[in-house]
Nucleic acid binder design. Structure first.
Length: 870
RNA sequence: GCGGGCGUGGUGGAACUGGUAGACACGCAGGUCUUAGGAGCCUGUGGAGCAAUCCGUGGGGGUUCAAAUCCCUCCGCCCGCACCA
């Protein structure tokens, strides 16, 4: 689920010794033990409180956690612990997205079995996550590579098949001709296989598809209901689904009986058409290639680009003139050349387009390259037919139709309607809605995935595995010696009897895309029932997920597949909801500056040392080039290992640093100074309780009758902080919450022994303890105990702000002259306009700035600003 | 190529629906305690200027009494693109 890079590095510098110091090692282990013994974070459906389901994207078990995980899971834990303190019945589970390519790569490179590798990685990462003190209900842990998980998705697949949501068709894969293997897009580098270096071919293969397009409209329309998702994610999904309205138009072919159908979103520009372009995989292109060696060679060349859209779109636009000519549907006698072009996608629209160079940049580039006519048919408003000329820039804006027969003079939108009506009337075309979204291909020619429960029988065809025979268990006795899919090489696993006729048949050797597992795991966490995917009562109670948290890199695919799966499960009676994630928070990356020696070799952060303004290699003293901050990645060695950080500074310090400064959705810059700053603050809080300078009133002491002015101010600060932090946490402004708590720390630190100070100091410390509890849970428990409580901070309700103390009685108002600040006023809240204006005008500095010039206007915004315009 | 985003002091960031730019930190400087300090505590810190004041939110332009915030345009960087997860 997470991106590929995981940190791996050595120890950071030891923190400076501050004499009496918070012993995080013992303290963190102690409270983790207490939480576990008391089952503090076990979730139950039976609690009478309202439910709240917090979920972080589960990790791929790469072997070690990286800072991205630390950030993600800290964010989730703050939400979980905060909501818990607010009295909600919280479900906060964790598991492992355990199938995937890296395990197979490890098997090939290190001769470790994927199952062993994965299970060991899970054990190592579970230990690391536990050291972070996260409030998971570990009794609900799942690993998707285990049959007790994937058996249920095999059943789901069969149900989807029955429901008509699954079908089989041919589609393109990246084929490595040397390794005889299908390659993932990430294994194709510049059109070459990553291991073999051989030029990759596009090859057709029969595969299983999920009919996600059945729900195109629903998936699009229901985005509107996801009001707790980031706007940008909804926009990305909207663009991905890519609904467009246009027309399908038929072009007759010269000297042939058939026609070619194209899809266009700009039917209004039909009179500007100057060529037809077919996808290399278009049936007509394929047919012509069978008789034309040069065309066949061109298509073969096109097929040496990988299958990824980025690769196809960034490749140089090339066309091949087939010699076939198409008649213009509305201009008798006009013939257009038919090209095969490498940028036309078979998967989109009709796999063929008409080119209108004057009003589409790509078509224009193509027309210039192959010397095709450019006929402007839309004039920008204000321009007439004679003055319209197209040079190197296509005009894609609105305007009035020209050179277009009966459309002349119409605005673009009217022209679209009119021409489509005309085409429909003449039987030459029709209005059409098209989607960019394609059905989801789920077949993978890989070993380490969930077997697709299908049997191929020579006589009966494709047969689902009977439910009683589930799960189809992935065999572990396989060999990675030969290239290709080990499942296909297994001596006996493939052999099966046809469920219908009983004759010898073969199992499907493809496995599911690993997005399959992550498309329903959120439901499995609700109940680990052994016989079914989940208990209906449990999902009815817990789902949807109230807050989902993870990387922005999943903004489209994972989230869209999960939304689809939820609808498919609903259709098959598994559950009753459509949208799996009611709230979504996407987090930014963790970055670090990069270091290179004079030869350009990357250096780990702990291999370098700062010497004043310069950075040198610690071992040799030679200067080091400091590069800009980038996402932590093994390849650049700009990684910091969370385990080393936790061992040196403790989990709370790491957690605090993850929350300070950067808002969750922005990138976070990892710095040594930052982690040390967090560590110092933690010690400062600890000292305030355990080495207090002033007297903290004993627990349960009577409230003092008198409070000094300073103590009163401190109390007001305490209650304003409660209100502010609560609001910040509700909106996930964790960095602001931290800043506010630090402000409160500053405010109460100065309390001495004046009237009531001890009592206010206790109130302040207790408040800080509870406010930091979601962020620094171990320290909070320790402080809570230190303040004399026998209960757990984790079981203590969130503090409540006294509204009387939160309201401020006076406000500071800015006074401007001509928009420039000339002074400030301290006035009672709610001072009327006239009084504020008079007070402003009487300020000495304001008078000087006015300098006797006549006052034209005075703008007064109550409680905010007075602006004098002269 | 297409789609989405980001850009504020030396640094990370704050600034609510347009209303005192720089909260809170890091760093730096000075002071203090100390046998010592990469500890703690106190003070200062956007830039220029003795000052009044001026200049400042990636660049340029616009709207407004008032713009980091709204509009146009340009630049730089990042993410996704369907077999990485």
């Amino acid at each position: 689920m997470d991106a590929r890079n995981n940190a791996e590095s050595k120890k950071p510098a030891m923190p400076a010794d501050s004499g009496a110091r918070y012993n995080f090692k013992e303290t963190e282990a102690k409270w983790q033990r207490v939480w576990e013994e008391r089952r503090t974070f076990r979730a139950s459906e039976k609690a009478p409180r309202p439910k709240y389901y917090v979920l972080e994207m589960f990790p791929y078990p790469s072997g070690r956690i990286h800072m991205g995980h630390v950030r993600n899971y800290t964010l989730g834990d703050v939400v979980a612990r905060y909501k818990r303190a607010r009295g909600l019945n919280v479900l906060h589970p964790m598991g492992w997205d355990a199938f995937g390519l890296p395990a197979e790569n490890a098997a090939i490179e290190n001769r470790v079995h994927p199952a062993k590798w994965t299970r060991e990685n899970i054990a190592a990462m579970r230990r690391q996550l536990k050291s972070m003190g996260l409030s998971y209900d570990w009794s609900r842990e799942i690993a998707t590579c285990e049959p007790d998980y994937y058996r249920h998705e095999q059943k789901m697949f069969l149900d989807f098949l029955k429901a008509g949501l699954v079908y089989r068709k041919e589609s393109m894969v990246n084929w490595d001709p040397v390794e005889n293997t299908v390659l993932a897009n990430e294994q194709v580098i510049d059109g070459k296989g990553w291991r073999s270096g051989a030029s990759v071919e596009r090859r057709r293969l029969a595969q299983w598809f999920m009919k996600i397009t059945t729900f195109s409209d629903e998936l699009l329309d229901d985005l509107k209901t996801l009001d707790r998702w980031p706007e940008r994610v909804r926009l990305m999904q909207e663009n991905w689904i890519g609904r467009s309205e246009g027309a399908r138009v038929n072009f007759p072919l010269a000297d042939r009986a058939d026609r070619v159908e194209i899809y266009t979103t700009r039917p209004d520009t039909l009179f500007g058409a100057s060529f037809i372009a077919l996808s290399p995989n278009h049936p007509l292109a394929q047919e012509l290639a069978s008789k034309d060696k040069a065309l066949a060679a061109f298509i073969a060349a096109c097929n040496h680009t990988g299958t990824s859209e980025a690769a196809i779109e960034t490749a140089e636009k090339l066309g091949f003139k087939t010699g076939v000519r198409a008649g213009h549907p509305l201009r008798p006698g006009l013939e257009l050349p038919v090209y095969v072009a490498n940028f036309v996608l078979m998967e989109y629209g009709a796999g063929a387009i008409f080119g209108c160079p004057a009003h589409d940049q790509r078509d224009l580039d193509f027309a210039r390259k192959y010397s095709l006519p450019v006929i402007p048919v839309v004039a920008p408003s204000g321009k007439d037919k004679a003055s319209v000329a197209v040079a190197n820039e296509a005009y894609v804006g609105d305007g009035t139709l020209i050179n277009s027969d009966f459309l002349d003079g119409l605005p673009v939108e009217d022209a679209k309607r009119k021409i489509v009506a005309h085409l429909e009337e003449k039987g030459l075309g029709e209005r059409a809605v098209n989607y960019r979204l394609r059905d989801w291909g789920v077949s993978r020619q890989r070993y380490w995935g969930c077997p697709i429960p299908i049997i191929h029988c020579g006589a009966c065809g494709i047969m689902p595995v009977p439910e009683k025979d589930l799960p189809v268990v992935l065999p572990e006795d396989v060999s990675f010696e030969k290239p290709g899919n080990p499942l296909a090489h297994h001596p006996t696993w493939k052999d099966a009897a046809c469920p219908k006729c009983g004759s010898p048949a073969q199992r499907e050797t493809d496995t599911f895309d690993t997005f399959f597992e992550s498309s329903w795991y959120f439901a499995r966490f609700c109940s680990l029932s052994p016989d079914t995917a989940f208990a209906r009562t449990a999902v009815d109670y817990w789902l949807p997920v109230d807050q989902y948290i993870g990387g922005i890199e999943h903004a489209i695919l994972h989230l869209l597949y999960s939304r689809f799966f939820t609808r498919a499960m609903k259709q098959c009676g598994y559950l009753g909801i459509k949208e799996p994630f009611a709230g979504l928070m996407t987090q930014g990356m963790v970055c670090h500056e990069t270091y290179q020696d004079s030869r350009g070799a990357w250096l780990y952060p702990e291999e370098v040392r700062r010497e004043g303004a310069t950075v040198v290699r610690a071992s040799t003293g030679e200067p080091v080039v400091v590069g800009r901050s980038e996402k932590m990645s093994k390849s650049r060695k700009n990684v910091v290992d969370p385990e080393a950080i936790i061992a040196t500074f403790g989990a709370d310090t790491a957690r605090l640093f993850m929350l300070s400064d950067s808002p969750p959705d922005r990138d976070l810059e990892w710095t040594d100074a930052g982690i040390e700053g967090a560590w110092r603050y933690i010690n400062r809080l600890w000292r305030m309780v355990f080495q207090a300078k002033a007297t903290i009133a004993p627990p349960g002491a009577a409230k003092p009758a008198q409070l000094s002015e300073r103590a009163q101010d401190a109390r007001a600060a305490i209650h304003r902080t409660i209100a502010g932090v609560s609001g910040d946490l509700e909106r996930f402004h964790f960095n602001k919450a931290v800043a506010r708590i630090r402000e409160l720390t500053n405010a109460i630190e100065g309390l001495g022994d004046e009237a009531g100070a001890g009592s206010v100091l206790r109130e302040g410390l207790a408040t800080i303890t509870l406010l930091i509890a979601p962020m620094m849970p171990h320290l909070a428990e320790e402080m809570w105990r230190g303040l004399g409580h026998g209960t757990l901070a984790a079981d203590t309700p969130w503090p409540v702000a006294d509204p009387a103390l939160v309201a401020e009685e006076s406000v500071s108002i800015a006074v401007q002259v001509n928009g420039r600040l000339r002074g400030t006023l301290e006035l009672p809240r709610g001072t009327d306009r006239a009084t504020a204006e008079a007070a402003a005008l009487s300020l000495e500095n304001v008078e000087r700035a006015i300098g006797g010039k006549p006052i034209r206007k005075v703008i007064v915004v109550p409680n905010r600003i007075v602006n004098v315009v002269v």
